[in-house]
């Protein structure tokens, strides 16, 4: 499906100064409490997002992508999950220290989010239009008619067929793809600077996936907003990303511009993900999946979290924890990187 999405591979990425940063996550630590015990789901996670770019956060299921996004939105299921350390700098503020009221202003207005499952993410008992106007009116001092007009425009923009009629529709009257468009329209209606899209197309069928991604790209270009796109699908990443952060077991293990990452993946985990991808491994007889699964937060290995699944693990890897360090110009968390053999 990557071919149906306009390719961004090869787009040039100029160097940016920190002053330009839109969102800057620094050493984020998010943990789950279970009785007396506390386990890190996200550990020491740092990530910058600049204006007008698409950053992809990739990793297998259960590696903490959604929890990272929910930490930024301050929508974690607290208790038991709580952000307990680090900073999330957005413009001038550390989101983690804002009051609930201030944080509510940030949501939708500055940072909007689209969730994983369009089938359950819409309010089943209120019409599309009434929820959208409610969101608008929570932020802007507008009368209902003006707000409804804004909602209608947003629905038109995301390419929802028959938007006028859909204002009065309920979720059950729409397909999954239409519902996802409604969710995206709701997220974009206040023109946020950053959109966090958590696997926005995973639940949809392949043709609809491509259309939705295309539409997201188009919106991003027009609005000059940034997107943090969460996905476990590298084909999607290749199609849309400017930069990629690869996440494993709650940590970022490698970060690079998209073309560099696909050309020369350095982390054994990234290499494993690419080996498991059909488009990259055409030359080989069969795909090589990474053996094993992501360990749950309660059972993290003490050294490198990838060691149990890593083909290049050294004895050091089992005892010592690698830091995210600049290696050949990109952040990398590995003691023993090896050249990539496609």
């Amino acid at each position: 499906m990557a071919q149906t999405v306009p390719s961004k591979i090869g787009s040039t990425q100029q160097a940016r100064s920190p002053a330009e940063t839109l969102l800057s996550i620094r050493n984020l630590r998010t943990a789950v409490s279970q009785g007396e015990d506390r386990f890190d789901i996200v550990r020491d996670l740092s990530l910058d997002i600049f204006p007008n770019e698409i950053v992809c956060l990739v990793g297998e299921s259960g590696c903490g992508k959604s929890i990272t996004a929910l930490s930024v939105m301050r929508l974690l299921p607290t208790p038991p999950v709580r952000a307990i350390g680090g900073e999330i700098q957005f413009k001038e503020n550390d989101l983690l220290t804002l009051s609930d009221k201030e944080m509510r202003k940030v949501r939708a207005e500055d940072i909007a989010m689209v969730f994983q499952d369009p089938l359950t993410s819409l309010d089943p008992v209120f019409s599309v239009g009434s929820v959208m106007t409610e969101v608008i009116k929570a932020h802007r001092d507008l009368d209902t008619n003006t707000a409804r007009t804004m909602a209608l425009e947003a629905l038109q923009e995301v390419g929802l067929p028959d938007p006028e009629k859909r204002l009065d529709s309920y979720p059950h009257q729409m397909s999954g793809g239409m519902r996802q468009r409604v969710l995206i329209a709701t997220a974009l209606v206040l023109d946020p600077d950053l959109l966090i899209a958590d696997e926005p197309t995973t639940a949809l069928d392949v043709t609809v996936q491509a259309q939705i991604l295309e539409m997201l790209l188009e919106e991003q270009r027009q609005r000059h907003m940034s997107i943090l796109l969460i996905t476990h699908d590298l084909a999607v990443v290749a199609g849309v990303a400017d930069r990629v952060a690869v996440m494993y077991a709650g940590e970022i293990v490698e970060q690079a511009p998209v073309d560099e990452l696909f050309e020369d993946p350095k982390h054994p985990y990234t290499q494993g993900l690419l080996h498991a991808l059909p488009h990259i491994s055409v030359k080989r007889e069969k795909l090589i999946p990474i053996p094993g699964v992501v360990p749950p937060p309660q059972m993290m290995p003490p050294g490198c979290r990838f060691a149990p699944r890593c083909p290049y693990a050294l004895s050091r890897c089992w005892q010592e924890r690698p830091e995210l360090e600049i290696n050949a110009g990109r952040p990398l968390r590995c003691f023993n990187p090896q050249p990539f053999v496609a």
Binding site: M73, L75, P77, R104, K105, V106, R107, A108, E109, A112, M113, F115, D117, T120, S121, L122, D123, P124, V131, E134, V135, A138, H139, L183, T186, A187
Partner: peptide, 14 residues
């Protein structure tokens, strides 16, 4: 704790 309520919270509703 449902998804649709999370969407409303993400919309900045009190």
């Amino acid at each position: 704790e449902s998804d649709h309520v999370r969407t409303l919270r993400a919309g900045g509703l009190s």
